[in-house]
Simulated scan of single mutants.
Amino acid sequence: MRQPVVMGNWKLNGSKSMVTDLINGLNAELEGVTGVDVAIAPPALYIDLAERLIKEGGNKLILGAQNTDINNSGAFTGDMSPEMLKDFGATHIIIGHSERREYHNESDEFIAKKFAFLKENGLKPVFCIGESEAQNEAGETEAVCARQIDAVINACGIDALNGAIIAYEPIWAIGTGKAATADDAQRIHASIRAHIAAKSAAVAEQVIIQYGGSVKPENAESYFAKPDIDGALVGGASLDAKSFAAIAKAAAAAKS
């Protein structure tokens, strides 16, 4: 059975005091919780602090990051490499987020290069896919998701999805308060898994597919009750220890 993964994407939020309070709060809230992997992706400046706080709290949390470069060293001002992220104990690295695609013009092909380089370095890609509101209204959701996944499959091969995480995040639901219904999310998750299964049933069966987009304690249980939804990539609610822990606990309970 696939163990759910609930990951917090903190985006451009944080301070030393906020990171300390949030991680200490999560360490307390997650005491004794099993059956779910809980990860956080703080801003890069706070990864060192986060690593230390996670160790002090008994390693209940998995450390992640919000981005990576496609080089491990060299003249690439302002970037950070998989090798550097590994040096601080980060393992789960978000790529393909819609904000990176939009604000930094990251193409499907460039994201596939990031995916390949993370795998080469022994890190776990958290690979975001999803459609815009216009694409959703035009009935193009499944085609958009398939295209984004195929960029990775074509570049890396189907087996590269082994051990990876796919995060389906409808762009129109990110930070808007809107959210896909659990039934709609399940339909898309099932189509994503079926698309992968057409190339390898074994890969499709084990790949984690998270839902993301205004996930909150109030709606988390309805998502996790669905057979193809394996956790969540959480934005705003991950900045509150009690809310984020409640989502993680809902995932553990639903999949137990």
Rank of each mutant, 00 (worst) to 15 (best):
R2K: 14
Q3P: 01
P4G: 12
V5N: 01
G8T: 02
W10V: 04
W10Q: 07
K11R: 12
G14W: 05
S15G: 12
M18R: 04
V19K: 07
V19L: 08
G25D: 06
G32C: 03
A39Q: 03
L45K: 00
D48Q: 13
D48P: 15
D48C: 11
L49A: 09
R52G: 08
G58W: 06
K60R: 15
K60S: 02
G64A: 11
G64R: 10
N67K: 12
N67T: 12
T68A: 13
T68I: 09
D69S: 15
S73K: 15
S73C: 12
G74M: 01
F76R: 10
F76H: 14
G78M: 03
G78R: 08
D79G: 13
D79R: 13
M80I: 15
E83L: 14
M84Q: 13
H92M: 13
I95C: 05
R100I: 01
R101M: 04
E102C: 01
E102T: 14
E106P: 07
S107N: 09
D108E: 13
K113A: 14
K113W: 04
K113G: 03
K114A: 04
A116C: 01
A116Y: 00
L118W: 09
E120H: 13
G122L: 11
V126L: 15
F127L: 12
C128I: 09
G130S: 11
E131K: 02
E131S: 01
E131G: 00
A134Q: 11
N136Y: 09
N136C: 08
G139T: 05
T141Y: 07
T141P: 07
V144K: 06
V144M: 01
V144P: 04
C145N: 15
A146V: 09
A146H: 09
A146K: 15
A146Q: 11
R147S: 13
I149N: 06
I149V: 15
A151P: 07
N154Q: 14
N154F: 03
G157D: 03
D159H: 04
L161M: 10
G163V: 06
A164T: 05
A164Y: 05
Y168I: 03
E169V: 06
I171H: 03
W172Q: 03
G175Q: 06
G175A: 05
T176L: 09
G177T: 11
A179Y: 03
A179H: 12
T181P: 02
R187T: 13
S191H: 11
I192P: 06
A194M: 02
H195W: 02
A201W: 02
V203S: 06
A204T: 08
Q206E: 15
V207W: 01
Q210V: 02
Y211D: 07
G213Y: 11
G213C: 14
P217S: 12
N219M: 09
E221W: 00
Y223A: 11
P227A: 10
D230R: 05
A232N: 08
V234M: 12
G236R: 07
G236D: 04
S243L: 13
I247F: 06
K249I: 14
K249A: 06
A251R: 08
K255N: 10
K255Y: 01
